[in-house]
């Protein structure tokens, strides 16, 4: 399938890391953003001997069963940037904490978490913000925190690599979609109007988005696939990150006023 997209910036996924090492050629590597490994536990010898320092995204399928497998990937950090993408599903909190403890970056794959999962999201956001030993980003918290800190209109669509103006997801059948969570929606529109249309459609049903203080950064991200999804949990995390960003900005400003080097 890769032949069809040669020359474009690519993220290449596979279940088998050996396949990635063996099949990607120099031309592919020049345009490669990163590779995704969708089955953990198959061994890393080929990745360790790979002569190219390609960033690697380890895509967790089941946080409960994949957690102990993370350890075997730690040696990759010598030569690769490694991120762990973890679905917000039972067990994700422990897995995310372990991943950052092993110095992997983390990206949360979110659908529409229930209240229990959002309670764990809040715990994880607190851990990311306040635990002194955390030194790697946990997305979307990290970029959103920075967006609040710098007052930039960065959206979750962009943070979560689902911005249709920049990225497409190619299904195993070769069909294009905005992202994996949209794969049941059918082919993606050719224009970049998906977010706008999406928000308009959902906002027509949900006045909630219009009144939401986080609309700029969220842009209706949590309203997919069920537009009647209750966003209270999502807003709690937004609020926590925004408050922390404001607090940090204030602290640094005070330090500046006192002439101390932050």
């Amino acid at each position: 399938m890769i032949e069809k997209y040669r020359g474009q910036n690519l993220i290449v996924r596979s279940h088998d890391p050996s396949e990635l090492v063996k099949k990607l050629n120099q031309e592919d590597l020049d345009k490669l953003s990163y590779v995704q490994i969708h089955t953990l536990g198959l061994g890393i010898d080929d990745l360790l001997s790979w002569e190219y320092a390609v960033p690697i995204d380890l895509v967790v399928q089941n946080p409960l069963t994949d957690l102990p497998l993370l350890y075997q990937y730690a040696p990759l950090l010598t030569n690769h940037a490694v991120r762990v993408s973890v679905p917000v599903a039972p067990g994700f909190l422990n897995l995310a904490k372990l991943a950052v403890s092993l110095d992997f970056s983390v990206k949360l794959e979110i659908l529409q978490p229930d209240r229990t999962l959002f309670e764990e999201m809040i715990q994880l956001a607190h851990y990311y913000l306040h635990q002194s030993t955390v030194s790697k980003p946990i997305e979307y918290f990290h970029s959103l925190f920075l967006a609040f800190y710098h007052n930039t209109p960065l959206t979750l669509w962009s943070i979560q690599e689902e911005d249709p103006t920049r990225i497409r997801y190619i299904t195993d059948q070769g069909e294009e979609a905005v992202s994996k969570r949209f794969t049941e929606m059918g082919p993606a529109p050719d224009s970049a109007s998906l977010i706008k249309e999406f928000i308009e459609e959902r906002a027509a049903l949900q006045a909630e988005c219009d009144a939401c203080e986080f609309r700029v950064n969220c842009s209706g991200y949590f309203k997919w696939p069920r537009p009647d999804y209750n966003c209270d949990g999502a807003k709690s995390v937004f609020r926590m990150l925004k408050d922390a960003a404001i607090e940090l900005r204030k602290d640094l400003a005070q330090l500046g006023e006192r002439g101390e080097n932050p």
Binding site: L67, P68, L69, L70, Y71, Q72, N94, K97, L98, V100, S101, L102, D103, Q131, T133, V134, S135
Partner: peptide
Amino acid sequence: QARPGLLVQGEDCLDCLYLT
């Protein structure tokens, strides 16, 4: 090789602030 992955689940390591 399997030791840390198994023991952090059986012990209280995942709740430890110094897991890293």
